[in-house]
Design a protein around this nucleic acid. Structure first.
Length: 478
RNA sequence: GCCGAGGUGACAGAGUGGCCAAUGUGACCGCCUGCAGAGCGGUUUUCCGGGAGUUCGAAUCUUCCCCUCGGCACCA
């Protein structure tokens, strides 16, 4: 059994073998911060978050790098529209992005470099590319990568022919007049006086979009990465450009051994994107659904497939999520009334089997959907055991431990395992709730069902759900 | 136009040639329950876009056709 991944570079499933043993350098393209992030970004970063966590779970030493593009035409244009300083604007949306990721339980990258923090390094790499003959500066103060110098690599990731690319894009790109070849891409771009810029050997300007990833992945990772990830929309031209310039710079190939790309998120079968205006920001969706449901929803489809967003689908995901969530709650309640030892040891076999299936699923290109399906089966078995008898505390703790182990990868059930902190719900403290339940129990004892139901309804209105079980009454916040 | 991905039950979505094609949601029935909830058991008739082929055997491989979505300026 070994991990296999789908590599965009070869278009095949390949066994995952890192370049340097257990140490992995993984780079994922971050966002351009000119607006709040939308659910499509969430999809991408949650997918790679889980990939990262699973590699850690397998015992790899993962060094995870993800940049923030904080200077770019879109930022400058947006700032012009709003009259805001472009750097203030990008700082504002960088904070927004980091907040969103934290809400969704995406682990912080080990390194999160920004473009503006690496201007000097970028200039140095561009200088070398010119020296080596892979790039040329023009009189207008632009520097372009010269694609004729690595023509054999055109289409290496997008798997298209030069002609195909020329026909498709040539007609639409307004070809910069100082470019030698239509497919050449900009490494350094001249900045007019009213726009952000830095002094360079070619005049005042700013980095092109692709060069940052080359520079930062090398500075914080290695000249050759194990994994490079991003949305499928980055395959061309962004990631291909990175290959040209990185391999030109280092003389080593491949720039990245594995290229992983996540699929899109659509709405009504149309791609969610800022240019189409059909997007929901992460903050909007978080306003309607809890973060763990959003994560569950995203992980409920394989990361390379398209997900069609709709409230209906999210609600469905919420109900599915509750099944496992309820199982965890059931186990926790059972622990309270369980004997220390002496229960049916069969439960350990269930855990071993479930762990095997989890790894088996995830080893196949991070198949979280399959992993969740197996977790449902495990949940059902545990519930079945629980409805027949109460196992001993030790084995129940082991079940909880297993959920926690899995959750280290999926990051979905943490709240259920740890439990909600004590607090106030609907103006009621835990103490108030317990008191009301006590009253209801008295009514039930007297078979005063009307009064018992009234209390239950009253609590329900305030967001507390009462459930009568054989180990006593339990409650949870809706 | 060029290139790519995909069409699986009511819906969502796995499926690594071979036990009755996972799993979840929904619906229905039963158990449990004062009722409800949660849970358990069961049912949801021929669910693999269509044709041809390879094979003892195909949802899985080949080929043709139909349809959908996406990439080719920016995009996760």
């Amino acid at each position: 059994m070994a991990l296999r991944v789908y590599n965009t570079l070869t278009r095949e499933m390949e066994e995952f073998v890192p370049i340097h043993g257990k140490k992995i350098n993984m780079y994922v393209c971050g966002p351009t911060v000119y607006d709040h992030c939308h659910l499509g970004h969430a999809r991408s970063y949650i997918s790679f978050d889980v990939i990262r966590r699973y590699l850690l779970y397998l015992g790899y030493d993962v060094h995870y790098i993800s940049n923030v593009t904080d200077v770019d035409d879109k930022i400058i244009n947006r700032a012009k529209e709003t009259g805001e300083d472009p750097f203030d604007l990008s700082a504002r949306f960088t904070r927004s992005f980091i907040e969103d990721m934290a809400s969704l339980g995406v682990k912080m990258p080990d390194e999160q470099p920004t473009v503006t923090g690496h201007i000097k390094e970028i200039i140095d790499v561009v200088k070398v590319l010119i020296l080596k003959g892979f790039a040329y500066a023009t009189l207008q103060g632009n520097v372009y990568y010269d694609l004729t110098k690595s023509q054999e690599k055109i289409g290496i990731l997008s798997h298209q022919t030069t002609e195909g690319l020329m026909e498709g894009s040539g007609a639409r790109i307004d070809v910069e007049k100082d470019k030698r070849y239509p497919l050449d891409f900009v490494l350094w771009k001249n900045s007019p006086p009213d726009e952000p810029g830095w002094d360079s050997p070619w005049g005042r300007g700013r980095p092109g979009w692709h060069i940052e990833c080359t520079v930062m992945s090398m500075k914080y990772g290695s000249q050759q990465l194990d994994i490079h990830g991003g949305g499928a929309d980055l395959i061309f031209p962004h990631h291909e450009a990175e290959i040209h310039q990185s391999e030109g710079y280092t003389g080593k190939q491949p720039f990245s051994k594995y290229w992983l790309h996540n699929g899109f998120l659509t709405i009504d079968k149309e791609k969610m994107s800022k240019s189409l205006g059909n997007f929901f920001t992460i903050k909007q969706v978080l306003g309607e659904f809890p973060p763990e449901v959003i994560r569950f929803f995203i992980l409920n489809t394989h990361y390379r497939n398209t997900i069609d967003y709709s409230e209906k689908h999210l609600e469905e995901a919420g109900r599915a999520y509750e099944r496992i969530s309820n199982t965890i709650t059931n186990v926790k309640y059972a622990i309270e009334s369980a004997a220390e030892e002496g229960g049916d040891p069969g439960i350990y076999g269930e855990i071993d089997e479930a762990r095997k299936l989890f790894i088996w699923s995830m080893d196949e290109d991070f198949n979280t959907r399959e992993a969740l399906a197996n977790l449902f089966i495990f949940s059902r078995r545990i519930n079945a055991i629980l409805s027949e008898s109460i196992p001993d505390r030790k084995s129940l703790q082991a079940v909880l431990g297993f959920f926690s182990e899995i959750d280290g990868v999926l990051g979905v059930f943490g709240k259920d395992i740890r439990g909600t902190p004590e607090g106030i719900t609907g103006g009621l403290s835990d103490k108030d709730i317990d008191a009301m339940i006590q009253q209801r129990e008295e009514a039930r004892g007297a078979k005063d069902w009307k009064r018992a139901d009234t209390i239950r309804d009253e609590l329900k209105e305030k967001g507390i759900i009462i459930e009568d079980g054989k180990e006593g009454v339990r409650w949870r916040r809706a």
